[in-house]
């Protein structure tokens, strides 16, 4: 072939087919497109700061001067509607959160880790795939449905089993939260176990270890960072849960003395009371301050989980 027809590649062709015009336009807009992409990339930072900013803004009056922090953090008296003297002590709310989350983790962590071990080490490929899909679907069940289950289904069962006067309490919330947290614990823990190189397992097998021993003595120590991260993420999910605890733990603002006492968590308090406040009121502002506390706690947990996970990459030398 002569070179004449090939030169047409280098010189722009004369045809103006619509496809060519489209591609030309798209390529001309390239700097613009790249800027839009860049801005979208920065938007994530924007939104995180925006959350922090706006929540603080609405709570700023109370945050910077309105609240007596000592009372806030140590008093169990939460009486925002009191006409005489409104009190904003969140100790009861804090203990409510801790109690429900603690119970939930007590149930969910062993179960979740055990299930993760089963899926990762013992299950055959078909079983593994099925279980993983089921667990993923369980993770997708909305929070309000869990609350519904707690309120309508589990409540009467608890009354029947324990003879308690009310079925929505720490026990109810704990069980519901445990069932909600298990999927995330299982999937993160299973990832962590899967990341342990097979060579560890093979070496242990060659030394004559049983699977049980391999799990406890080899895998858990090797995957401990990932497992810890799984637990932390489960805790994070449980602490931040709103609708399920709102419906399953009751409405009593009190420090729980037994498993069947109703409590209120911080999240449920905001959800229950914000609707009745007006922007600018003290009560409104304090609810936002509670929101800030929640944000900070969630931030801390997530940061720790992330650092723990990075600890694997930093520390592992294969």
């Amino acid at each position: 072939m002569s070179s004449a027809d090939i030169d047409s590649v280098q010189a722009p062709p004369r045809s103006r087919s619509p496809l060519r015009v489209f591609h030309m336009l798209v390529d001309l807009c390239e700097p613009l497109v790249e800027w839009i992409i860049r801005i979208c990339g920065w938007s994530a930072i924007l939104f995180v700061f925006a959350i922090f900013f706006f929540v603080i803004r609405e709570g700023s009056e109370m945050l910077f001067g309105g609240i007596d922090f000592k009372e806030f953090l140590t008093s169990p008296n939460w009486r925002p509607d009191s006409v005489v003297r409104p009190q904003y002590g969140i100790l009861a709310l804090l203990t409510g959160t801790v109690a429900v989350t603690g119970l939930a983790m007590l149930i969910a962590v062993p179960l979740g880790l055990g299930a993760a071990v089963y899926v990762s080490e013992f299950a055959g490929p078909k079983t593994k795939e099925t279980l993983k899909v089921i667990i993923e679907l369980l993770a997708a069940i909305p929070s309000v449905v869990w609350g519904f289950i707690g309120y309508i289904v589990l409540g009467p069962i608890i009354i029947w089993l324990t003879g308690a006067p009310v079925g929505i309490n720490v026990l109810n919330g704990g069980i519901i939260l445990a069932l909600m947290s298990v999927p995330i614990i299982v999937s993160v823990a299973e990832d962590a176990l899967r990341a342990v190189p097979d060579s560890y397992r093979e070496a242990a097998l060659a030394l004559g270890a049983s699977r049980w021993e391999i799990v406890l003595r080899v895998l858990f120590p090797a995957a401990k960072n990932g497992l810890l991260a799984a637990v932390l993420l489960g805790v994070g999910r449980a602490i931040g849960e709103t609708m399920a605890v709102l419906m399953a733990t009751g409405h009593a603002v009190q420090i729980p003395k037994s498993l069947v006492d109703p409590v209120r968590t911080m999240t449920a308090t905001i959800a229950a009371e914000l609707g009745e406040t007006v922007s600018g009121e003290e009560h409104y502002g304090v609810l936002f301050v509670i929101g800030i506390v929640l944000f900070v706690i969630a931030f801390a947990i997530n940061l720790t989980a992330d650092l723990v996970v990075k600890g694997i990459r930093g520390g592992q030398h294969d």
């Binding site: 072939m1 047409s8 590649v9 280098q10 722009p12 062709p13 087919s17 060519r20 591609h23």
Partner: peptide, 19 residues
Amino acid sequence: APRRAGLFDRHELDELVEK
């Protein structure tokens, strides 16, 4: 590469690809 450079004529592309 020819498409990125602006060549869209099917006949020319066929020739180029074969070459």
